[in-house]
Design a protein around this nucleic acid. Structure first.
Length: 885
RNA sequence: GGGCGAUUAGCUCAGCUGGGAGAGCGCUACCCUUACAAGGUAGAUGUCGGCGGUUCGAUCCCGUCAUCGCCCACCA
């Protein structure tokens, strides 16, 4: 560090310099520490081709703060980074590029060619997000970094798949799935977003065969009648139950279908008659299973009607709907149309309307795994912070549904199921290219064309990244030390997607939960509380924030907003505020630096009471820091640090130290310099997890030659020996006296530089001693040339203005003319305030029930409060009387 | 339809097992005081969403209503 420090802190070079030093010096690598225990956080792998957004920035900040904290505490820490292949979104980007550049779709080129293009894309953009994480200061060990499509990850996926397959937990089935016509793939329930859409109820007449009876059916999707294979009524519905067993005629296609009785039909709802389309409705599919109904798929993969659509073939559902309605009107089978708001599923990625469709897909039976994952949370093997989120988790895991894991995509883990072409045997195989059919040894086999849901590999991530299932790799990457990992940090939106799946997979394959704690952090929103989104254009680019305010300020802002809350409304002005705070620290150091050469290594034994006070405040702060970080209450950590550094240290201790340091008392100067240095060393250490860069920079100047970088230094702990509560109490009174004196000065417009005389009256002996010992401090901070400290029995000065605290009367004698009216007015205002408060306490004390029921310490406290206030009131009253006479 | 959460100073939010409300930002006034104008000193502001209940005492517990979020759900 240069000798001359600039008046403002410039983070740019400092941040680059230290990140490089840490990374090159292998400071992020796990090292055995004094705790002899591992602490590991697996970073939620961001999309490989993504860019860092504000949510990631919060992820990094909280995880890195925890890691840095634990590293300093002496744990063997590993912050393990990685990247996700993000099947759908990456493939979509590559498809877009192919179309824009070469007017090609994925169907125009081979699977191999497409994958080659995707890998190229990955190589080109894959590094971006990691570099951005580095800018944020993430202290990950990049040597551990993994990509979900790395060969090692593939091995884990195949191992898990084959095991589940052989246990019969993975099966293939014709099932109704959410079909995304845009992606032309099945997607999982969780990837479907239900949005309210204004549609209509269309009432249609179905003829009952061999009769004149018309059944009125209501539907929101009339076009699906082309796939109807039944009409259902409730067997208890007296209006219709006599028709059960008869046939109905589906309009347009004139198909004769059975009328079935099914409890699912709600007598009250709609018309009480339900058209049943097992091929395109989840409920109808279930009804179909119960009554053995035929399933007719009327849709192509792109969502248009197929040959079952008859004259509407080739139309989209939306277009077909209008035409079908028109046709029904023509056939005089249309009754009416009512406007209707209902929830319609949309693809999370594609945004298009999801069509329920029956197709052959792979599923995982998660019944038992889900049960185990619920049990783990109920028995506290894994705990949510804040605890309330376990309800969300339970609501998913207590009602597990079949997990559809096959996707009709190209970019992802290929499903390792093979079918023999000669004997038709189907098997799952861990080998990329199996040597042959296990049954007939033929080498002629085909592999299932689908890939796995991204969350299948994500669910294995904590194990995969630590080397599972390869013994050697597990040894090398420290599986036994780091698994189960310490904490998972993530947003609530992926509790089901990710947390639940990791829990299931972890317990299934490692026999242990994948992490002991899950900290669910807030969602970052804009300052008006809106979600950040591209369409609103209200996104905050973390890199831009780092450029403008510095990584430390940005991190501190995010941490200060993070506790057990659900949202952080991020206002760039707040970042500016914390940038100023960082700068304040820089300048506090500029003040201290010239005196450092005086400082000694060990704290002096003859501390004065100002020094005892600041050390005690520091000690309390260390206590709060240790506890709050452990509890993920980063908001508490940041506010405790902020007020200690800003108020206690800068505003009071440094200001008080100016006297001492400019005095001729060499012993006092040395002692003070030593305490200042001691405090500052602890300040940068305490702050390091949140603001790693500036603290490391300042530490390089503060540390002794034989000491290591701050990133590896000890985190300050609370120490009973450093607790000076009496000094803290007296100092608080001292501060109150000085502040009130300043107030008095301003109330009569005394210029800041003008020195005054001051008289204090108190009956607290301990306080009087304390004030006398710190009389130079009062002189310096209240700009007083002389200060008299008296007992209250002494006479008050004539011609003066006065302010009363609960413990001390402050008198400012004045030479000039005093506006008595104004002073009386001010005192009366004080009086009213104190009296009001006093009455509250007095009322309590005169309440017998209070005395009888309240805790004794509360009663004592109230008594003391009342006495103090009484004293203050008397002081003010005396003065008013004096002024008036 | 079910569930969860929120409602506290102009704004964003703390407030642990009930003892009478805090922070940051913003705002006002005065100050370039030799660490810092990205600064200093001082100051103002709250029927703690409404109504009931429990209690000696409620921002905190219970009930209820209102408003706003979010999540889940197959509602034809």
């Amino acid at each position: 560090m240069s000798q001359e420090l600039a008046t403002t802190y410039d983070p740019k070079d400092v941040e680059k310099k230290w990140y490089k030093t840490w990374e090159e010096g292998k400071y992020f690598a796990p090292k055995k520490g004094k705790q002899n225990e591992g602490y590991c956080i697996i970073m939620p792998p961001p999309n490989v081709t993504g860019i860092l957004h504000a949510g990631h920035a919060l992820d990094i900040t909280t995880q890195d703060a925890l890691i840095r904290f634990k590293r300093m505490k002496g744990y063997e820490t590993l912050f393990l980074p990685g990247m996700d292949h993000a099947g759908i979104s990456t493939q979509a980007k590559v498809e877009k590029k192919l179309w824009e550049e070469r007017k090609l779709t994925k169907h125009d080129i081979s699977r191999e060619e497409f994958l080659e293009e995707t890998w190229k894309w990955k190589e080109e953009y894959g590094g971006n997000i990691a570099n951005q994480q580095k800018v944020m200061g993430a202290s990950c060990d990049w040597d551990y970094s993994m990509f979900t499509l790395d060969p090692e990850a593939n091995e884990a996926v195949r191992k898990a798949f084959v095991d589940l397959y052989n246990e019969g937990l993975i099966y293939q089935s014709d099932y109704i799935v959410n079909w995304d016509p845009e992606l032309q793939s099945a997607i999982s329930d969780a990837e479907v977003i239900h949005e309210e859409v204004t549609g209509a109820f269309y009432h249609i007449h179905y003829k009952v065969a061999d009769s004149d009876i018309l059944l009125e059916v209501a539907t929101t999707r009339p076009e699906t009648l082309l796939g109807d294979t039944a009409v259902a009524v409730n067997p208890n519905d007296e209006r219709f139950n006599h028709l059960i067993g008869k046939k109905a005629i589906v309009p347009i296609c004139n198909r004769e279908v059975p009328i079935v009785g099914d409890e699912h039909v709600d007598i009250e709802k709609g018309t009480g008659c339900l058209k049943v389309t097992p091929g395109h409705d989840f409920n109808d599919f279930e009804i179909g299973k119960r009554h053995n109904l035929e399933i007719i798929n009327i849709l192509n993969k792109d969502g248009t009607l197929n040959e079952h659509g008859l004259e509407f073939e080739g139309l989209t559902c939306k277009k077909a709907r209008n035409k079908v309605v028109a046709k029904l009107k023509e056939l005089e089978l249309f009754v009416k149309e009512e406007k209707h708001k209902h929830q319609v599923g949309h693809g999370e990625r594609s945004g298009v309307v999801i069509e329920p469709m029956v197709s052959k897909q792979w599923f995982v039976n998660t019944d038992d795994m889900a049960k185990a994952s619920v049990d783990a949370v109920e028995t506290d093997k894994m705990r949510f912070y804040p605890k309330g989120w376990e309800n969300t988790y339970f609501s998913y895991q207590r009602n597990p549904r079949n997990w559809c894991i096959s996707r009709q995509l190209l970019w992802g883990h290929r499903i390792p199921v093979f079918t023999c072409k000669s004997c038709d045997h189907q098997w799952a195989d861990e080998g990329v290219e199996p040597s042959g059919c296990p049954k007939c040894s033929t080498k002629d086999y085909s592999q299932d064309p689908d890939v796995l849901d991204t969350w299948f590999s994500s669910g294995l991530w904590p194990m995969t990244t630590l080397g599972w299932p390869n013994k050697e790799r597990m040894e090398q990457r420290g599986f036994t030390t780091f698994y189960p990992t310490s904490v998972l940090v993530t947003g609530f939106d992926i509790i089901f997607f990710w947390v639940a799946r990791m829990m299931m997979m972890g317990e299934k394959f490692a026999g242990k939960v994948p992490f002991h704690k899950t900290y669910i952090h807030a969602i970052v929103r804009d300052k008006q509380g809106r979600k950040m989104s591209k369409s609103l254009g209200n996104g905050i680019d973390p890199i831009e924030m780092v450029d403008t305010y510095g990584a430390d300020a940005f991190r501190f802002t995010l941490a200060a907003g993070s506790g057990y809350n659900r949202g952080i409304n991020l206002d760039t002005e707040r970042i500016g505020g914390y940038r100023n705070f960082i700068n304040k620290i820089w300048n506090a150091y500029r003040f201290i630096q010239p005196h450092l050469s005086l400082a000694e290594d060990d704290l002096p034994t003859d501390l004065d009471n100002q020094e005892k006070w600041i050390l005690s405040e520091l000690n309390s702060t260390a206590k709060i820091m240790n506890e709050s970080i452990e509890d993920f209450r980063f908001d508490d950590s940041c506010s405790a640090l902020y007020s200690f550094i800003y108020d206690s240290f800068c505003s009071w201790f440094i200001e008080l130290s100016k006297n001492t340091l400019s005095s001729d008392d060499q012993g006092a100067k040395t002692r003070r310099a030593t305490v200042l240095k001691y405090c500052f060393r602890d300040i940068v250490a305490l702050l390091h997890p949140f603001a790693p860069f500036i603290t490391e920079e300042l530490w390089s100047d503060l540390k002794n030659e034989n000491e290591d970088l701050l990133i590896s230094y000890d985190y300050p702990e609370y120490s009973e020996a450093m607790n000076y509560s009496e000094e803290q109490e007296n100092m608080n009174k001292f501060i109150e006296i000085v502040s009130n004196t300043r107030f008095l000065r301003q109330s009569v417009n005394i210029k800041p530089k003008e020195e005054v005389s001051l008289q204090l009256f108190s009956d607290e002996d301990k306080l009087i001693t304390f004030l006398n010992e710190n009389i130079d401090g009062i002189k310096g901070l209240a700009k007083a040339k002389d200060v008299l400290i008296n007992k209250k029995s002494e006479a008050r000065p004539e011609k003066s203005i006065m302010k009363a605290t609960t413990h001390t009367e402050i008198f400012l004698p004045l030479d000039g003319v005093i506006d008595l009216e104004e002073q009386i007015k001010r005192l009366e205002k004080d009086l009213t305030k104190s009296q009001k408060e006093y009455e509250k306490y007095d009322k309590k004390l005169s309440n017998e029930k209070f005395i009888a029921n309240a805790k004794p310490e509360v009663v004592a406290e109230v008594k003391e409060k009342a006495n103090e206030l009484k004293e203050q009131i008397d002081s003010i009253n005396d003065r008013i009387k004096n002024f008036k006479s």
